[in-house]
């Protein structure tokens, strides 16, 4: 079946089987391989993308279900060569090692701050409950999220007011 959607601001269209999961639509049909598959039970969050601005697990959605939607993958987060504040914070704080969980973790964290621009450490930890990392022990990931919440406060406040959520 024909499945159209907007991915990172570009219109995409592909003829795929109905059973195609969003993550494989992105990886195989669109050719954006930054979204990773780390499990088969919606547990690890490596496949997290933004669907109409909110974090979702793209391994647990049929591509057919989100025809016409606006999807952001890790490839669409940076502004040209300028890293997004969350990507920058992960780099500053050494919030990644092997990098496999990173796209999902960064997007989950982005969604988290869009909902709650000034979270406590506990809220960050709870908010990332759906993303597993085996390398970092989470310490520097949490630090990165708190770091950008603090240093880029205006950016996140603007994001939050845009999505109609207030802190």
């Amino acid at each position: 079946m024909q499945v159209d959607m907007t991915v990172n601001g570009q219109d995409r269209s592909a003829d795929v089987e109905a059973r195609t999961l969003l993550v494989y639509y992105l990886r195989d049909a669109v050719g954006l391989t930054g979204t990773n598959v780390g499990c088969d039970t919606s547990s690890c969050g490596a496949c997290t993308v933004l669907l109409n601005g909110e974090s979702v697990k793209s391994c647990t959605i049929l591509a057919a279900q989100v025809r016409g939607a606006d999807v952001t993958t890790i490839e669409g987060l940076a502004d040209g060569t300028a890293l997004h504040p969350m990507q920058q914070a992960f780099m500053e704080c050494h919030g990644l090692q092997c990098g496999y969980c990173t796209p999902g973790m960064v997007l989950a964290a982005t969604s988290l701050l869009a909902d709650n621009p000034r979270p406590t450490e506990a809220e960050v930890r709870e908010g990332l409950e759906g993303n597993l990392c085996r390398c970092t022990g989470y310490h520097n990931i949490v630090k990165a999220v708190l770091h950008t919440a603090e240093h880029d406060a205006a950016f996140w406040q603007a994001r939050a007011s845009k999505s109609g959520v207030t802190a």
């Binding site: 940076a78 780099m91 092997c98 990098g99 796209p103």
Partner: peptide, 15 residues
């Protein structure tokens, strides 16, 4: 290593 991995440019086998 980070910029590549942070932007989805890291190529793992499945990619």
């Amino acid at each position: 290593e980070d910029p590549k991995l942070l932007t989805g440019e890291g190529k793992y086998v499945d990619d």
